[in-house]
Simulated scan of single mutants.
Amino acid sequence: MIKQLEIETHPEIVYPDSDGQPMADNTVQFRWIMVIYHNLAWLFAENPEVFVAGDLLWYPVQGNNKLRQAPDVMVTFGVPKGDRGSYQQWKENNIAPQVVFEILSPGNTLKEMSKKRLFYDNYGVEEYYLYDPQKNDLTGWLRSGALLDVIDEMNGWVSPRLGIKFEILPEIWQLYRPDGQLFADYFQVQQRLEQVQEQLDNTQKQLDDERQAKQVAEERAKRLEQLLREAGIAPDIK
């Protein structure tokens, strides 16, 4: 009797889309994440090969679903836009996110943030920015060779990858687009859109009024010409 060899099978590795942790611990942290995410998404909206994500699990190594981080905001150049449940690097031409932002909350520990920085250092992040809104403190790291080095002066710093400028004022951190426009939150953008729409409406109304006035004047001129002809007077039309 011939005994068949048993085929060894390996269970499929699942890469969860969620780590069970909240996106933000408070409104300040959430607001900063949204401002950075949306402004970077707008900045690169026309480039199909720039992927911007917030709170998305990043798995750098195939076969290891324990090795992961979910940056508050990450930007990856060289991969297409599109929805993803997680960022599995081996499915993205093995391109690691080049820029990462983290916004501190009171619940973050020094050990936790040290582990995150080590992760970003080990797996290829080029620029890492860490902001503490409670202290208005910004720290940045830039890759130099194999390691992320601390950026000595963040006030006035311009991101090599993003082209955005950072300014640290006494009470707040401000970010500027390459064209000099200040990063805006949703409400500010909505206000600007409403102002632009109001200006367009006013311009259209002015054009409509001018068009109507011209039409009335032409009709009056035609009526006057008709009355003159009826009275036997030849109108002097040039």
Rank of each mutant, 00 (worst) to 15 (best):
E219L: 13
K238S: 12
M154G: 00
L147N: 13
V189R: 11
T109L: 06
L228E: 11
S86V: 03
D72V: 04
G78M: 06
G232A: 10
P22C: 09
L118N: 12
N47I: 12
S144M: 13
L104N: 01
P11N: 14
W32H: 08
V216K: 13
M1G: 15
R143K: 10
V75P: 00
M154P: 01
V79F: 02
V99R: 00
D149C: 15
L147V: 12
T203C: 12
V75S: 01
Q69L: 08
P11R: 15
D55L: 04
P178S: 06
Q226V: 08
V216F: 03
D137T: 07
D137A: 13
K205L: 09
P106F: 01
I95W: 02
W42Q: 13
F166H: 00
L138K: 01
N94D: 14
E49G: 08
E49F: 14
V61A: 04
N65R: 02
R220L: 10
Q174D: 06
Q29W: 00
K116A: 05
S105H: 01
V14H: 08
Q204Y: 07
N93V: 07
E127Q: 07
Y123M: 13
F187P: 00
W58S: 05
K135F: 06
T139S: 12
L118G: 08
R211P: 03
P71E: 01
I13T: 05
M113F: 13
L5P: 12
V79W: 01
W157P: 00
R117Q: 11
G140K: 00
P80W: 02
E102Y: 02
N202R: 14
A184K: 11
L57D: 01
